[in-house]
Design a binder for these strands. Structure first.
Lengths: 155, 155
DNA sequence: GATCATAATGAGACTGAGTCTCATTCGCAA
DNA sequence: TTGCGAATGAGACTCAGTCTCATTATGATC
């Protein structure tokens, strides 16, 4: 699992653990050894990862526990789940642990890659979406702007 | 399945069937009775639908065939698959059979609702994304701009 | 309209990502 | 150090979606 890191986390390794710990505490979860190792595995990938990616990087982690802990991390706002076009979910650090960004999703192999846009475009999108959501009685939390197509390998 | 229709198809009922037929033919698929009924079921929903929605509306349709035909319709550009936060995929007519639009995805129940944005915002997003994709050697086909949050029922 | 080759269908078995269960272990508080 | 609730590991389980294969519909040709 040696992938290019597209979006650098704005925090150092120890600050990241610190931030994760605070978020877990706020939700009455413990920052255990295996959760720490899970966070390290996601960090070392530097890109959205699937369960197989995580277990390949840290074979001592047990799948059922990893799923459970990804769920805990998601509830605590540490991790975001990305539903790609494949049949597996991808996970990555949630904003603002990772800078705001979007995804290139390959229709061929389902791989997910991070990408950033202009501040200007972001602001307009945000405003426009919030307006539209209001009309439907929808309470928005975050937006995901994904580009679907073929990655360099599948093209 | 009486849902509000958010985005009207720009085509009449018969024009829609005509357009679907043409797209299937272009891909050497036949527009059979059961595919016609499937298209009607999606049309009558007026919103993104899951397999249970479709089968509830047209019980004579067999799940395995529906999946197979949704796949055929997707390959032919008749239908788009939406990966919501739930565990089931949603389907709706692809653009330009349906006007260009985006989705409100409920984190609580996974339901998907259609929504439209300003032309202006769309144009900027399109330009910005295409640029970003180019930098990654990615071949873009379409973008999906989804808003994640809670629907009126789950809020 | 009859015949034929091929595509599509229906029924059910199968796959596999993700969840649940439960006995055991860990982590924290007093 | 003890005790108790939270977390873990191992594996059974669920169920959306896919695959298989025998049967049936479809459209092309005569």
């Amino acid at each position: 699992m040696t992938r290019v890191r597209n979006i650098d986390p704005p925090l150092s390794h120890s600050d990241l653990h610190e931030a994760v710990s605070r978020r877990l505490e706020r939700h009455d979860y413990r920052y255990t050894q295996s959760r720490r190792r899970l966070v390290d595995a996601i960090l070392s990938a530097g890109q959205p990862v699937t369960l197989p990616d995580i277990v390949a990087d840290a074979p001592e982690l047990v799948p059922s526990s990893v799923y459970r802990n990804l769920d805990v991390l998601e509830r605590s706002g540490v991790v975001d789940r990305i539903n790609s076009s494949g049949d597996r979910a991808y996970f990555e650090f949630a904003e603002p642990l990772l800078a705001h960004h979007h995804h290139l999703i390959c229709i061929g192999c389902g791989v997910v890659e991070d990408v950033r846009l202009d501040e200007d475009v972001e602001a307009r999108v945000e405003r426009s979406l919030t307006e539209a959501a209001g009309r439907s009685g929808f309470t928005p939390l975050r937006h995901s702007l994904d580009l679907h197509g073929y990655c360099a390998l599948c093209a």
